[in-house]
């Protein structure tokens, strides 16, 4: 299977690339979305407005690729831009693939939220097999709010409860970093590959 990691030009995409290669995916990196990939990854680096502007400039292409059968994984910020809007750094529109907006995490003792947290199952799916109760690595200050609970498979609690795995037809987003989450992350990526083959 082939994966394309979209490079918005900032940050570490080396780790997600290494993690997917360890799962025997053929990995390419490009700054332009391209057809004929099983998986297109929005990596978790950068700031909301610049990344959402970048992706929205390819809005039609991305929607066409979805129709043609490519699946999408958004990680952290890459998941957040799949929602309708964000308030970080002056705010901006997202892709609107999931209902909800991205707001600062409420009630958190310290921000950014950096570290390992236990995830809790809310909806079972191929993506959540053997995942409930495991610890994943988080590094973020913003979370999805006003979301549709039926999109949410997993939540975590840091000051307040927030979605950490959202799923729709051919699209998935994680607030955690599977590529940084050791054995738990590896299990999640195994599930992701089964989900791609479904």
């Amino acid at each position: 299977m082939r994966a394309l990691i979209l490079n918005y030009g900032v940050g570490n995409i080396f780790s997600i690339s290494s993690a997917l290669k360890r799962k025997n995916l053929e990995v390419d990196v490009s700054s332009v979305p391209r057809p004929e990939y099983d998986l297109i990854v929005f990596p978790g680096v950068g700031a909301f407005s610049s990344v959402s502007n970048f992706l929205r400039s390819y809005g039609e292409t991305l929607n066409r690729l979805r129709k043609e059968g490519s699946s999408f994984l958004g990680i952290c910020l890459g998941m957040q831009v799949m929602f309708q809007s964000g308030s970080e750094g002056g705010g901006g529109e997202g892709l609107g693939w999931f209902q909800g907006k991205i707001e600062k995490l409420q009630g958190a003792p310290k921000l950014p939220h950096i570290g390992w947290d236990r995830v809790q199952l809310t909806n079972s799916s191929l993506l959540t097999e053997n995942i409930d109760g495991r610890y994943f690595y988080f590094v973020h200050s913003y979370v999805a709010q006003n979301y549709d609970p039926s999109d949410v498979d997993l939540v975590a609690n840091y000051g307040s409860i927030f979605p950490v795995l959202v799923e729709g037809p051919g699209i998935a987003g994680t607030q955690f970093h599977p590529e940084k989450s050791g054995e738990s992350g590896s299990l999640f990526l195994d599930n992701l590959i089964r989900w791609l083959r479904r």
Binding site: S18, A19, Y137, E179, S181, G182, S186
Partner: peptide
């Protein structure tokens, strides 16, 4: 850094 980052799957 490259060889460490490609070996581990926790934050660096």
């Amino acid at each position: 850094v490259r060889s460490t980052a490609s070996t581990i799957s926790i934050p660096l």
